[in-house]
Design a protein around this nucleic acid. Structure first.
Lengths: 292, 292
DNA sequence: ATCATCTATATGTATGGCATATAGATGAGA
DNA sequence: TCTCATCTATATGCCATACATATAGATGAT
């Protein structure tokens, strides 16, 4: 049995005439008779009572009609859904990211995307950058959003948006009154830092300072950006943070721009090479959403 | 798209290998690749990620797999149900009959048949014989069970079982003490009769008496057998009834067999010529159920 | 580096679905 | 009642396409 048989059967069941049903199907009448005969033969059951004057469904035909309609409807639905997924209009996105990237605009992009594409489900897993890459390679997630991208030939890295790095200082700090500062002014400060063991971004910040001639004095290492601002506001030291994080405005916290040489905190999307269309769709959207 | 594509797709989705899936499908590998390619082309969507080492489902593929399995399952189910209907193992029987035929064994046959064929639904419409035939011709019912069959070339009449006619008399009647009587002894009695206007059976009884040389004196005409026994037990007269009805044993009622010439009350099943298999199935069952 | 193994492509073949032509059946109308 | 119109079934030939065979290309294993 093939879907052709069902299509022909349904047409005939609607028209109750081989001639007109065949016309509707854009075939001639004999092959329609043939196919219906084959179908009945396979089912070992008459589906139509026919004379040269009248065609009508048997009881078995009535039952089969219901099934056939359901099957054809489901095939249409299946095709539509698959096409939607193929075009990135539907699907599931498992994304992994960090708190700080969410804060710096990803949350907004996700919300906007879901409003435009209600058939797309998005799950968010917050996890440290290294775990993100591991989860990506194990295909537990589809996209990572990272500050600094891993160097892996199997993965595709796309810069999604750029962001300046600024400085978080406690309210009582000597720099607290200023609007901006330079990196070199900070060479004797105590720093709350991203944990060097986990974070490529931390290493990036450190090496940036090193290129300018000093090694920041790190008094505390944490994982999350919010932990940095929390500790800074408590007075433990100062900290590099992405602009969007520093602007959050916790009580007891001041944010300073950095003038002159300044590390960047670009956000990158990382995916497998063979990502589904919906994934690329989302990345493209996130990129332009923040730009616009 | 054809069911072939779905079958091939499902096999490949299970095996995740073109080679082994093709073996399972009893085709060679190239046509499998071809058909999958065609399917993907029609859906405008990749369903599998493939290398020469690895085949895996895409997100769209996963979605399509669920649909494909459902569609194929429903196809099997549709075929099974239609075959069941075709073989008379399932379906709906709308039957029309009279109270007296139900009493004379049809109820038992129906109950037994439904126990053997739980997938068969049976509806019973009690109505006068003439209406039965009209309903049958209008296809509102599938079978009529009648005492005396209509003479209609378009209808199929089958004798289902035979039954003697006996005599119902009131308890106080002069015949009440006897076990049996002959027709000719009744020529001066008052009769409660089936309504001649409706009932071919009534006409049959009347003409039977006429052949023996008398016309029964009819004091009352009713439609239902139970009405006859009710009126007889009330003392209005005596009445011809099928044996199964007379044997019911109402208070104030006696049943007498008729010796010598005796009208018969055969029960016939009447159907359209093109009745569904389940109908013939049921008639055959009813015939032999009462015989055995 | 070679081989084994898997999928993709190329090409020929044959099954079967389709069209054309026609027979057979049946109801309508003269 | 006969003829005609109309519908389905059958017969026959053609062609599309699903399949097999052969082979190329790719990739991981030894």
């Amino acid at each position: 049995m093939e879907l052709r048989h069902l299509r022909y059967f349904v047409a005939l069941a609607e028209e109750l005439s081989f001639t007109t049903a065949a016309q509707k199907l854009n075939i001639s009448q004999p092959p329609l008779s043939q196919q219906i005969r084959d179908l009945e033969h396979e089912l070992k059951t008459e589906l139509f009572r026919r004379s040269s004057r009248q065609v009508e469904l048997t009881a078995a035909g009535h039952a089969f009609r219901r099934h056939a309609l359901a099957i054809l409807a489901q095939t249409r639905q299946a095709a539509a859904q698959v096409r939607a997924i193929g075009q990135g209009r539907a699907g599931i996105i498992h994304l992994a990211t960090t708190n700080s990237v969410l804060l710096s605009g990803l949350s907004l992009a996700i919300a906007e995307f879901q409003r435009l594409h209600p058939d797309v489900e998005i799950t968010i897993d917050e996890m440290p950058p290294q775990e993100q890459v591991a989860a990506l390679k194990a295909r537990r997630v589809d996209i990572c959003f990272l500050r600094l991208a891993p160097d892996d030939r199997d993965l595709v890295v796309r810069r999604v948006w750029g962001e300046r790095v600024g400085l978080a200082v406690p309210a009582g700090h000597k720099l607290a009154g200023k609007k901006a500062t330079t990196i070199l002014e900070l060479k004797d400060e105590d720093f709350v830092f991203y944990r060097l063991r986990d974070s490529a971004f931390a290493a990036h910040l450190q090496s940036f300072c090193a290129q300018l001639g000093f090694l920041p004095k790190i008094v505390q290492q944490v994982v999350e950006s919010m932990s940095i601002v929390s500790l800074v506001s408590a007075g433990l030291g100062i900290g590099f943070v992405p602009e969007s994080v520093g602007r959050q405005g916790l009580p007891g916290l001041r944010y300073l721009r950095i003038t002159g040489p300044c590390p960047v905190a670009d956000v990158h999307a990382v995916t497998q090479e063979d990502a589904d269309p919906i994934i690329d769709q989302f990345i493209a959207f996130a990129t332009q959403a923040r730009a616009g």
